[in-house]
């Protein structure tokens, strides 16, 4: 009897993880290729791009806001980093991509933090702007890295370090740094405070607009990092390469259990959420479902995650 309550609490907190473990087991039985080291590393490499962006967007979501511009940000920055590889070389291209990412963050952050514009609208408009800039820059043409086989730029997307793909290292190391910043520093505490209650933060002398601005700058920086990985992996880009990423990022964050209302969440939860989504999509492909099923399943998974989150708050599964 004593254990029952604790057990219930455990299920409530970790219900999603348990369901996921069950899913992994079922898939492994049906698709033998699923739980092989090769496939697992493949999935991790795949989610590293979504995951790297999601780390940045998690800061924004904890302040109680959104960033829908990361998908088209990824497109523009990947096109730039790939194309500039041929013009100014890899180092210059990387610097330009990072600068571009920071600029996107600054603009979003100024409009949303200081001018108090609605985050949904501002980042949706930014999505359109970045898509337009991409087409203007590339003229709609595909771009490629000419010396793809010889450049050191290949390290970020195609390299291995101690048997683990470099993009996965970037995700994990970036995640660790971001997690430290969020959980242990003054800035991280302020992020939670602004998302938890902006008025109280103001009454406590916290500069909420500045915190929001920095959250968006981190989001932009993370997008630039993801673009560098993406460009390096594909060694090419076209104007739809980042399409739909904003949705996958958001789905991963929600799946990890970070509340969209702000004030709570963590980087590790986000990475777990993104990985879960990646494994589910991978499993569906391995089991022979057509590609479009991924989109349908993303819907199911988001609704399920939000439902479980709500149910945990209300204390029961069905109201």
């Amino acid at each position: 009897m004593i254990g029952e309550k604790a057990l219930k609490g455990f299920f409530k907190r970790n219900g999603l993880l348990l369901a996921f473990a069950f899913f992994l087991a079922v898939t492994a039985l049906n698709a033998p290729a699923f739980l092989t080291v090769g496939n697992i590393l493949d999935v991790l490499r795949q989610v590293s791009i979504v995951g790297t962006i999601a780390i940045g967007v998690t800061f924004v979501v904890i302040t109680g806001r959104f960033d829908l511009s990361v998908g088209s940000g990824l497109t523009l920055l990947t096109v730039i980093v790939v194309d500039q590889n041929n013009i100014v070389g890899p180092l210059g291209a990387i610097i330009m991509a990072i600068f571009g990412g920071l600029m996107v963050g600054v603009w979003n952050g100024l409009l949303i933090g200081y001018l108090k514009f609605n985050a949904l609208i501002v980042t949706l408009a930014m999505l359109s702007l970045l898509q337009g800039l991409t087409l203007w820059y590339s003229g709609g043409a595909n771009v490629n890295v000419h010396n793809a086989q010889t450049t050191w730029y290949a390290f970020f997307g195609r390299g291995d370090l101690f048997g683990v793909p470099v993009p996965v290292w970037i995700l994990l190391v970036g995640g660790a740094i971001a997690s430290f910043a969020l959980m242990k520093t003054r800035f991280g505490r302020s992020v939670f405070s602004v998302g938890g209650n902006e008025t109280t933060s103001k009454f406590s002398g916290i500069n909420a607009p500045k915190i929001v601005l920095f959250a968006y700058i981190i989001s932009g920086f993370a997008t630039a990092c993801a673009a560098i990985i993406m460009g390096s992996r594909v060694m090419g880009a076209q104007s739809t390469i980042g399409q739909g990423y904003e949705l996958n990022v958001l789905a991963g964050i929600i799946l990890g259990g970070t509340s969209l209302l702000g004030g709570s969440g963590s980087i590790w939860r986000t990475i777990v959420g993104v990985a879960m989504l990646g494994f589910i999509q991978n499993a569906l492909l391995l089991m022979g479902f057509p590609y479009y099923i991924q989109w349908l399943v993303t819907w199911v998974v988001i609704i399920l995650a939000v439902w479980i989150d709500l149910a945990a708050k209300r204390g029961k599964i069905l109201t």
């Binding site: 505490r189 939670f192 405070s193 938890g196 209650n197 008025t199 109280t200 933060s201 009454f203 406590s204 002398g205 916290i206 004030g263 709570s264």
Partner: peptide
Amino acid sequence: EQGLVLNMSGKNNVTLP
């Protein structure tokens, strides 16, 4: 609405300013 961040711990609320 103005004094506390309700979903923060007591310790973090005290040191917030």
